[in-house]
Simulated assay, not measured.
Amino acid sequence: MEERRGGEHEMKLVRTEEAVGQVLCHDITQIIRDISKGPVFRKGHIVTEEDIPILLSVGKEHLYIWENDETILHEDEAAEILRGLCQGPNMKASAPKEGKIELTAGCDGLFLVDTERLRAVNALGDMMIATRFAGFPVKTGDKLCGTRVIPLVIARERMERAKAVVGTEPLLKLLPMRPKRYGLVVTGSEVFHGRIRDTFTGVILEKLGEYGCEMAFHTVLDDDPAAITAAITDMLDRGAELVLCTGGMSVDPDDRTPLAIRNTGADVISYGAPVLPGAMFLVAYTGDGRPICGLPGCVMYAKRTIFDLALPRLLADVPITADWLAGLGQGGLCLDCPECHFPNCGFGKGG
């Protein structure tokens, strides 16, 4: 009889013919190429004389067995603990299988991950949590993460350490994105005087329409900061949950939209972002938390911009912070691929 390390605990290796009456400590899997893969015996099964030929037929000439006690956990029990550390509201979990559990989205929403605590758990060893990239919308049924306990058995104390690292808040969040009634202020003398056609409004209608948002207020104004300020304030007073301003966002002397937004009294979080296209993006919040955004001209003609990264957060009521914007630098360069595959690309996946 030999012994093997199972996490921090020993499991005994016995000849299959001598295993009658012993309890299996893990699933016995049979793989038939292009036909099936699945367990022929589950963990906890008590081996009988009739099982011996079957076990030998799947290549199991020896079996690992162990006697459970209060200090160790089987891989599936430990996987349930990892699931509990990850799972937040609006998520569904698979049944544990071979120490693995997957979480899927129970609704459409914005997926978020606490990356620091996730890294801390994965650094413990003998366990792992792998997630899809956070900060992007997901659909109902999309896979969010997979967890696995590496050894067949693991010390209960190690799982307690994982729980201490994570604390009481789940590692993952799935926040529903709520359609908002928004106002759109289109600025620019060239549009106001009819010298060019307004093509910005159509782009905004399409982008926000994908999320079911309603454009409740709309106006086209000259480059007059006082008039722009008044229009923003009026839309907010009339119940706009989000106000977007287009045009006048560069550093030219006659571009007045940033000044107009500041003059509303809103708190400007950032004017500028390390994202191309979209460097001249501005975001501000009113005293009651409603966002006002200044959108650079690239939003009108580029396939994907800073606005595509920010919009899901605006609709999920996740505050856009200067720190989050600063972190977009790595991955903030859109490569303008001939065929756009966003969000299945590196754009917006900052370090």
Rank of each mutant, 00 (worst) to 15 (best):
R4Q: 13
E8V: 13
E10H: 14
E10A: 14
E18W: 06
I28S: 07
T29F: 15
T29C: 14
I32L: 14
R33I: 15
D34I: 10
H45C: 07
T48V: 07
I52C: 03
S57Q: 09
V58D: 06
G59Y: 03
H62P: 09
I65Q: 05
I65L: 06
E67T: 11
H74R: 13
H74G: 15
I81T: 03
G84R: 03
C86R: 02
N90C: 00
M91V: 06
T104C: 10
L118E: 00
R119W: 15
R119V: 14
V121Q: 06
N122K: 05
D126H: 15
M127T: 09
A130M: 14
V138G: 07
T140L: 12
V149W: 07
P151H: 05
L152V: 15
A162Y: 06
P170A: 03
P170K: 01
L175C: 09
V186R: 11
V186P: 11
H193M: 13
R197N: 10
T199P: 04
T199F: 00
T199D: 05
G202M: 10
G209E: 08
Y211A: 11
E214M: 13
E214I: 14
H218F: 15
D223I: 02
A226W: 13
I228P: 09
D234Q: 14
M235C: 09
M235K: 10
G239I: 09
E241D: 04
L242I: 05
V243L: 01
C245E: 01
V251I: 07
P258M: 04
A260H: 02
P274H: 09
F281T: 06
V283W: 03
A284H: 03
P291G: 00
L295D: 06
C298T: 10
Y301Q: 13
G331K: 04
G332I: 00
G332M: 04
C334V: 03
C337Y: 09
P338C: 06
P343F: 02
P343Q: 03
